[in-house]
Design a protein around this nucleic acid. Structure first.
Lengths: 213, 213
DNA sequence: ACTAATTAATCAATCGATTAATTAGTTTTG
DNA sequence: CAAAACTAATTAATCGATTGATTAATTAGT
């Protein structure tokens, strides 16, 4: 059945995603991926055309979904601040629930190699970042946010804070005295604290009255 | 002369740092490093005992200096907010002036492999993060900052924002419409905007009056 | 004459990919 | 309906290339 084949491909993708996240692109050998997915090594090439193809398939699987969600949000008729808060919640939920992909995405962006693939991936992801920036810029234009807010830097703070918790998880664990890779800790402690922190900080920054004017 | 040897070792470290940043640990082969540094491949092992030793030497070179600077800052008799602002300035200057090391450090923290080395490195770096956290916690205790501030998350925002600009530089370049890897752009545009953004945002958040009380 | 520094050559191990052979599944044909 | 023919899926074995590291020999410095 065709379904079986798709299930198997999905399973390979899941395993590969986990291993790429843990070991990096070079560190995760096709042999290991095949072994952990309980398939023959040659199947990876048969299905995905090679290691790069497998890698790229992981990105395609994720990005398209998120893009649609963002565009819908941007078209809703709620205040700019509410949109941004929704963004914070959505990204916190998505990123912290799927740390593996988040790790891969971030690491890929920081490498200069594999240029062809790299450009494709950056192009995919950047569309989402632009949507977020649009929310902020619109908020400044319509007077919801302070006019001296730096939209680009705010985007960096939004994604950067979350990336830090995930990618520098060992450091965060040490700081917080808790294992922030433990799913239970993530759900009950990290997520709510992260959401609360970012909403408060951004609200204060975006809507506060600057005394130095 | 001994100086010549040290100079050569330093030169190797510089080249290696650059290549590790661009290509990752696995991507930067010892052959390439040796070639770019114009030394024989066997010299890397002779000097540093192997690839891992070379890698670790890069970390040792950087961390110790920063640690001392931070401890000195923490002992100065200025307000907590001023300390934090100094931190922002210092880290922005250091990180953006030496993006290569910043990239390495961040990527290393996000990998689960090379466990022995990894733990040593995390241990080195975490001491600095703890010093920054201390500044915030002290500020909360002495009433300078709002008591409901989440120190851990604030540290994540501080380091995360900067890391994002550096590690996701392609993305940032696309967002800002400028090449944020160009040294001139970094110095004249990214640095001042980053410093300004973080000081304003943190000040607003740390000292604002919460209306929802 | 002795030690440190440096070189070229080579080591085994591992990498991603491919091959040819085999099995399973489907379609065609008598 | 069943046998044959064909295609898709899967396997084990192997390919050349590259990896980090080591060796033994040579050079330079003291």
């Amino acid at each position: 059945m065709i379904e079986d084949r798709q299930d198997k491909k999905d399973h390979i993708l899941e395993v590969a995603e986990k291993l790429f996240a843990e070991l990096g692109y070079d560190g995760a050998s096709t042999r290991l991926i095949a072994q952990q997915a309980s398939v023959n090594m040659a199947m990876l090439n048969y299905y995905f055309g090679g290691k790069e193809g497998l890698y790229f398939a992981i990105f395609q699987k994720h990005v398209s979904v998120q893009k649609i969600k963002l565009q819908n949000l941007n078209n809703e008729e709620i205040s700019s601040l509410d949109k941004l808060k929704r963004c914070i919640d959505d990204y916190a939920d998505k990123m912290l629930s799927n740390c593996a992909f988040q790790k891969i995405i971030y690491r890929e962006m920081s490498l200069s190699q594999r240029s062809d693939m790299n450009k494709k991936i950056i192009s995919l992801i950047s569309q989402n970042a632009l949507e977020v920036k649009k929310i902020i810029v619109d908020g400044i234009k319509n007077g919801s946010f302070n006019e001296d807010v730096d939209a680009d830097m705010l985007v960096a703070s939004l994604f950067g804070t979350k990336s830090y918790l995930i990618n520098a998880s060992d450091m965060s664990s040490l700081l917080m005295g808790k294992d922030v890779t433990d799913p239970e800790v993530i759900e009950n402690i990290v997520k709510p604290r992260l959401k609360n922190h970012m909403k408060k900080m951004f609200s204060a920054y975006l809507t506060h009255h600057d005394e130095n004017k």
